[in-house]
């Protein structure tokens, strides 16, 4: 859905994996941006009907960007900065927050 503007300047990058696929993007971006950079529109399926969802607000309001990060579920991808080696995976179904 998105492409990144080319830059002539030098940018420090970080490599993460999105659904097992390596993706390299600038340091300081969020896990939701990593989904976008990987061309992945879907971050999770819903617990109720299994419908696919992806980031909607990008500012921490809607919780539609919940994904698994390094194996932990229910992480709000748009609020989490990427780190080298971070594993971002689709979260399917069940969600229990705050437990």
């Amino acid at each position: 859905m998105f492409r990144r503007l080319e830059t002539a300047g030098r940018v420090e990058t970080v490599t993460v994996s999105v659904g097992g696929k390596p993706v390299t993007l600038p340091r300081g971006e969020t896990a939701a941006a990593a989904l976008v950079a990987a061309g992945e529109a879907v971050g999770r399926t819903t617990p109720v009907t299994g419908a696919p969802r992806g980031p909607y607000c990008m500012m921490g309001v809607c919780f539609d960007c919940l994904v698994m990060i390094d194996g932990a579920p229910n992480r709000q991808a748009c609020m989490i900065e990427i780190r080298e080696g971070m594993r971002i995976d689709r979260q399917d179904g069940a969600r229990r927050l705050g437990g």
Partner: peptide
């Protein structure tokens, strides 16, 4: 606004 955040923070269009 979400699309604009992607533009501001990562230059995504």
């Amino acid at each position: 606004g979400a699309a604009q955040i992607l533009l501001k923070t990562g230059g995504y269009v």
